[in-house]
Amino acid sequence: MDFHCHLDLYPDAREVYCEAARRNAFTWLVTTSPKAFAATSRVLEPLPSVLITPGLHPEIAHERAAELELLLEQIAGVKAVGEVGLDGSPRFKAHYDVQRKIFGAVIARSAELGGRTLSIHSRRAVRDILAEFERHPNFGTAVMHWFSGSKAELKAAAEHGCWFSIGPAMFESVNGRALAAVMPRDRVVPESDGPFAKIAGKPVMPWSTCRTAAGLAPLWGISPEEAAAALARNGQALRCLMDRS
């Protein structure tokens, strides 16, 4: 399974898409803009094991702000949303107000529609994201993608009921391993974040769950097989939540 992947942005995207559908029981294809969602949904053949969702990535929020109304329309017809969120890093801080307007509207719309499952980008913005959850407690379920905040922020996110999607690239950093070690073990699911996430210069592929399990195993003090089983159980539980959205 893969709960956060940009399948449409790989070189040879159609081939990777079909291979992911063949190998994975479930792949969540997150898009970066409403127009990208429309195009991807039109170009890629619908497959039962691949979920394609609309999003508006915070890194391009200032460039695609005019697409917000389209995104809010699209959310009504789907059970999940992503990639959305906030990015408070120096490179994107100048556009933070635009990001907050968009993210706030997405959370409010999700709550208005009875809840959605969201794949959320939260780099240097965890507190503001949790504040939006508090303003709209019926927004649904948050899956924090490649979480990189502090341990205190991780604890706060877990207390808000957040899930966490992690992939092999997360284990490349000391901080990533430290965070993965203390995540709630019943709310961690696998992701690739390919093709953006890379190991040794090569994109992580959507069928990388075994590598994620191998990275988690020593951190959790269990075998890779036990870690893989935990990820599978968690993935099934999250999919059930998504189906109820």
Rank of each mutant, 00 (worst) to 15 (best):
M1I: 08
M1A: 04
D2R: 06
C5N: 15
L7V: 02
Y10F: 15
Y10R: 09
P11L: 15
P11K: 14
P11T: 13
R14L: 11
R14K: 15
V16H: 14
Y17I: 01
Y17N: 09
A20S: 09
N24H: 06
F26I: 03
F26V: 10
T27C: 15
T31I: 07
P34G: 01
P34K: 14
A36H: 13
A36I: 14
T40M: 05
R42P: 00
R42T: 11
R42V: 01
V43F: 15
L44W: 09
P46W: 01
L47N: 05
V50W: 02
V50R: 05
L51G: 00
P54I: 10
G55E: 11
E59M: 15
A61F: 09
A65V: 10
A65D: 04
E67Y: 07
L72D: 03
L72Y: 02
A76Q: 12
G77T: 12
G77P: 08
V78H: 15
A80F: 00
V81D: 02
G82I: 06
E83W: 04
V84M: 10
G85N: 03
L86M: 04
G88E: 05
S89I: 08
Q99K: 04
Q99F: 07
K101G: 09
K101R: 15
I102G: 00
G104K: 07
A105K: 05
I107L: 00
R109H: 04
S110Q: 03
L113A: 07
G114P: 02
G114R: 09
G115L: 07
G115N: 03
G115C: 02
G115T: 10
R116E: 04
T117I: 13
T117S: 14
H121R: 08
S122F: 00
S122V: 03
D128T: 05
D128N: 08
L130F: 13
F133S: 11
F133K: 12
H136S: 07
H136R: 02
H136D: 01
F139M: 09
F139V: 00
A142T: 02
A142W: 12
A142R: 08
A142G: 13
V143R: 01
V143I: 14
H145W: 00
W146I: 02
F147H: 13
G149Y: 02
S150D: 13
A152T: 10
E153Y: 04
L154R: 05
A158Y: 05
E159Y: 10
G161E: 11
G161Q: 06
C162Q: 05
F164S: 04
A169E: 04
M170K: 13
G176K: 06
R177T: 03
V182D: 06
R185V: 11
R187H: 12
G194N: 08
F196C: 11
K198P: 06
I199C: 08
I199P: 07
K202C: 07
M205T: 11
T209P: 11
A214H: 01
L216Q: 06
L216S: 01
L216I: 13
G221L: 07
P224S: 10
E225K: 14
E225F: 07
A227L: 06
A232K: 14
L238A: 01
L238I: 04
R239V: 01
C240R: 14
R244N: 09
S245R: 13
S245E: 15
